[in-house]
Design a binder for these strands. Structure first.
Lengths: 158, 158
DNA sequence: AAGTTTCGTTAGCTAAGCTAAATAAATGGA
DNA sequence: TCCATTTATTTAGCTTAGCTAACGAAACTT
């Protein structure tokens, strides 16, 4: 299942087909997230909560609908997530002054703090594994991580 | 905590810290799977069903417990998934001859066929996006995809 | 033979996704 | 202006997928 990585310099690296790359990115993503999810509970934040909260923390306050779109989720799903997090005092909601239909959502100080803790817990082990890789692999991963994000956001994907 | 890395070679793209790589792999995986999931329904197979089925198709018949472990899921979860797929005639169960407690699970012909269709649908667009990338990016992705899998399976991850 | 462990299932809970429909506000055309 | 439509969010109710606890049956161990 896992192919050996050849040295980059000498022989031509065996190039996988686009299909094989797609398959590996797919199953790699599934497996990675399953492993990481196992530590979510410790933080007191679920994955989707953490994800939405991080959009707020890094992107600032925004209307619920925009947050839903950013998370590629339907409005009712985000509405419920926000309601739960509001109960935990991790986010606030307030009516938009200019449009009374709209709700501005923002992270609280407590929310920001918890997010950072949760991220540390969730990503700490992954970071540790990566930082043990040789520099050359880290360089490749660093390009690849950016590409993965780009692909995931690509309009052509659907 | 973003550290500045002194550039060793101006020709190389800026290298991310291990933490930044971890963050991008994490959110990239989340976003990618969310996008891909949207086409699952078309195939008549959910993500976890497809994933378990693919273990059976590519790994052959195995006891339910082993399949659960392979999918990193508890036994009751796998038991339910198998029950549903059995109802769809995608898998069969039979008692193990040597251990009457154990249940051997296997994909049916119909299951194998549906899996392949589902994979085509689910991965097709991803494949298309990748194959449009320039060759150098594909080469990097091809190494990176393998690394992602390796990392996801790494014992050090927890 | 009795107690313990292992494999799987059932029951029941939670989280997160969805659609359809309700509510409320903004917009726009006659 | 007023009525209709569109837009933003919420509520209600469904589905899937994860979990733990508790159970029965079979297999080990002593």
């Amino acid at each position: 299942m896992v192919k050996k990585i050849p040295a980059r310099d000498k022989a031509l690296p065996p190039k996988l087909t686009a299909r094989e790359i797609a398959e590996q990115l797919h199953s790699g993503s599934i497996r990675l997230l399953r492993r990481l999810r196992k530590t979510d509970d410790v933080a007191g934040l679920t994955g989707p909560q953490a994800s939405a909260l991080s959009v707020l923390v890094f992107g600032g306050a925004m209307p619920l609908g925009k947050l839903a779109a950013a998370e590629q989720v339907q409005a009712p799903t985000m509405s419920r997530l926000i309601k739960e997090m509001e109960g935990l005092q991790l986010v606030t909601r307030r009516k938009d002054r200019d449009d009374a239909r709209s709700v501005q959502v923002d992270a609280t100080k407590k929310g920001r703090h918890l997010l950072m803790q949760a991220r540390d817990r969730r990503l700490g082990r992954l970071e540790a594994v990566i930082s043990k890789s040789p520099p050359e692999r880290q360089r490749i991963l660093s390009e690849a991580a950016a590409m993965l994000l780009e692909i995931a956001e690509s309009k052509e994907l659907g």
